[in-house]
Write a protein that binds this DNA or RNA. Structure first.
Lengths: 97, 97
DNA sequence: AGTATAAATCGGATTTTCCCGATATATGGA
DNA sequence: TCCATATATCGGGAAAATCCGATTTATACT
């Protein structure tokens, strides 16, 4: 759990949006045809107006920071919030900050 | 209280260090001759190895984000943590993140 | 007024971030 | 095997962040 890496990941509005949207997938990704238990399909995040490659990079940053988990199912990759890491980060920030 | 601005301010190790040192001024700035009730004199932070201008910029970033308060006393400017804003930020992050 | 000290701002070099389109890789299905 | 779809990676341009030394501004003291 790298606090600095997480802070850098959070210090970007698009990535913050992604994390927030993942709190309510049903509400924010009504076009997804896959069940939400698997997570949200990567391509869904392009609805923020950014290109596929840019979205992929943002998801990579969030994943490297440990803020999301990913699972490949067939040709798709599904993302979920990593609530454990998020909670641990908030805990540590409360201590450190 | 601009959450994004605060996150950007925190996403830098030097600024994070400054905020942490301000939690225990007596311990981290033993060379300061002014009483600590006024805060920590700006020049004290140059002990992190950065130049005067760089330290001044970091303090400006922290101040603009509302994370520290400053008070001029004579020719010096003293900095303190702004615990109210810090607490409010942690609260909001707990909500938003 | 003249000098000394503290801090902010300026100008510029370097690095990092952000974004894109194009291409490569992985998977699935015909 | 060939084609379609999903995602990652590459290459590069634009913008922002980081840092410095030099200069300016503010205050204090003589």
């Amino acid at each position: 759990m790298d606090k600095d890496e997480i802070l850098k990941a959070l210090a970007n509005p698009a990535r913050m949006d992604i994390l927030n949207w993942l709190k309510n997938p049903e509400e924010h990704f009504p076009t997804q045809e896959h069940p939400f238990e698997m997570g949200v399909c990567a391509s869904q995040f392009e609805r923020c107006g950014l290109s596929q490659s840019t979205v992929s990079a943002h998801l990579g940053t969030l994943h490297r920071a440990g803020l999301v988990t990913s699972k490949r199912v067939g040709q798709w990759i599904f993302y979920k919030r990593n609530e454990e890491t998020i909670a641990a980060f908030l805990q540590q920030l409360k201590q450190d900050l």
